[in-house]
Each structure stands twice: as structure tokens, then as C-alpha cells.
């Protein structure tokens, strides 16, 4: 009898743990990508050109200055690549950043800040 109870509790616990695991690895996050002017402290980084953006090796598209786009990512760790584009030709100048998102976090990424290697290039919100 006691053995049965132990087995059952263990089973339920295991299922709940699996559930939590699935929740974490399957969770979707929204990453908004801005190619807009940004002021961090006293410094203002201004958007001046057009970029092509990849998030987790998925092309998000061309973002002109002053525009924004959004990407949906799954899981915990992610990578964003930004490359400048001039008159429909990629310039080869790539900038890559990696970031991790906790469950329930979403992020706003600013391209001018990435280009200038500013620390506050990403803004994570719950």
C-alpha cells in the first residue's frame, strides 16, 4: 500500500517536472528590433542606414532607418546578426550578439546601439 503511494507520487512529480521542462524549452519570446535613434545616458546613437537582420539564423528582413520589426524566438539562448545593406547589396559588415531570455521575458533590441557596441543594446522586459 505504502509502496503504491510512493510510486504514484513519484509518477505525478515526474510528470510535473516534465511539464516544467517542456514549458522552459518550448517558451516563445518576442524580440522587437528597432532601427531608431536611441539615447543611453548622455549619448545618442542615431540610426543612419538600412540593415538586414537575422535572429537565430532566420532572416527577419530589411529594416530601414526609423523602422521596426519583430521576431519570435523559442527557448532560452539566442543570437542576432545585423548586416548593413547599401542599394540592395550586403556590405559584409556583420555584427553579432548573443543573449539569453528567461521565461516570460521579451526583449527590445536597438540596432544603432549594437553597431556602436553600447552596453544597453538590449532591453529585457517581463
Amino acid at each position: 500500500m505504502r509502496k503504491q503511494i510512493i510510486i504514484r507520487t513519484a509518477l505525478v512529480t515526474a510528470l510535473i517536472l516534465i511539464g516544467i521542462f517542456l514549458y522552459v524549452i518550448g517558451k516563445e519570446h518576442k524580440v522587437v528590433i528597432d532601427n531608431r535613434d536611441i539615447s543611453i545616458g548622455d549619448i545618442t546613437y542615431s540610426a543612419s542606414t538600412t540593415y538586414v537582420v537575422w535572429v537565430d539564423n532566420q532572416e527577419i528582413g530589411v529594416i530601414k532607418k526609423g523602422e521596426r520589426n519583430a521576431a519570435i524566438v523559442t527557448g532560452v539562448s539566442h543570437k542576432i546578426v545585423v548586416e548593413e545593406i547599401k542599394s540592395n547589396v550586403l556590405t559584409g559588415e556583420k555584427h553579432e550578439k548573443r543573449f539569453r531570455l528567461k521565461t516570460n521575458e521579451s526583449a527590445t533590441v536597438n540596432i544603432p546601439a549594437i553597431i556602436n557596441n553600447a552596453n544597453e543594446w538590449i532591453d529585457k522586459t517581463n
Binding site: 511539464g19 521542462f21 514549458y23 518550448g26 516563445e28 523559442t74
Partner: peptide, 16 residues
């Protein structure tokens, strides 16, 4: 609602 996607989303739906 929780935005769980992919095969893990499906398995979680089954679990729930």
C-alpha cells in the same frame, strides 16, 4: 496562452 511552441508545446498540451 503560455506561448509554448514546437513538439514540446504539443507534448505539454497532451500532459495538461
Amino acid at each position: 496562452d503560455w506561448q509554448i511552441v514546437g513538439i514540446s508545446g504539443m507534448l505539454l498540451a497532451i500532459l495538461i
